[in-house]
């Protein structure tokens, strides 16, 4: 059963990723990203990382993707259906990417085969890790978010006289 769901999710992710590579229409591009993000969240659930999946949906599909759509609406005002994005395919880059794929697979395969199956742990354990061992990175990520907020406001509002 979970194998079936896994392959369904894999097909969805594949379609989304191909749309990101091939689409001429900006909106389809963003929809492809949405498909990739949602199927990634599905994979997280399958692997036992429920909270991460919800965070992905909350932050990415509900936040970042909307930001991408906003940016598209502010920047591109083309008609849908008409190609508004240029797509250039380069066989050399394709070969390079396949090479990277083979390399990564060869490096990571032994690691993946060695390990035993468990899961992402309970929410309680996650909370203790975030507020225990990883407290400093956790607080720093809050600081980073604040810095990003200020940065975006200053970049976007800067040209208003």
């Amino acid at each position: 059963m979970s194998a079936l769901i896994f392959w369904l999710l894999a097909i969805c992710a594949g379609i989304g990723a191909l749309a990101v590579v091939m689409s001429h229409d900006v909106m389809r591009l963003a929809l492809g990203l949405g498909l990739v993000l949602l199927s990634t969240a599905g994979f997280f659930v399958l692997l036992g990382f429920g909270f991460l999946a919800l965070a992905e949906v909350f932050v990415y599909a509900g936040g970042v993707l909307v930001l991408v759509l906003f940016a598209i609406m502010l920047v591109h005002r083309g008609e849908p259906g008409q190609p508004s994005l240029e797509v250039t395919h380069d066989p050399l880059i394709l070969v390079g990417c396949v090479g990277v794929f083979a390399l990564l697979l060869a490096v990571l395969r032994p690691v993946a085969l060695q390990l035993q199956t468990s899961s992402g742990g309970s929410v309680d354990a996650l909370g203790s890790v975030l507020l225990g061992d990883l407290l400093l990175p956790f607080e720093l990520s809050g600081l980073l978010l604040l810095a990003a907020l200020v940065a975006v406001v200053s970049v976007m509002g800067g040209d208003r006289r």
């Binding site: 994979f43 997280f44 692997l47 036992g48 990382f49 909270f51 991460l52 965070a55 992905e56 932050v59 990415y60 970042v64 990571l108 690691v111 993946a112 390990l115 035993q116 199956t117 468990s118 899961s119 992402g120 742990g121 309970s122 354990a125 996650l126 203790s128 890790v129 975030l130 061992d133 990883l134 990175p137 956790f138 990520s141 980073l144 978010l145």
Partner: peptide
């Protein structure tokens, strides 16, 4: 996450993945 789901300390990987999500 895939490698982490095989490791013993799943919660640590979970937390690191969350922080990466924030960075991204």
């Amino acid at each position: 996450v895939m490698l982490g789901s095989h490791a013993a300390n799943g919660a640590s990987i979970h937390a690191v993945a969350l922080l990466i999500l924030v960075l991204a």
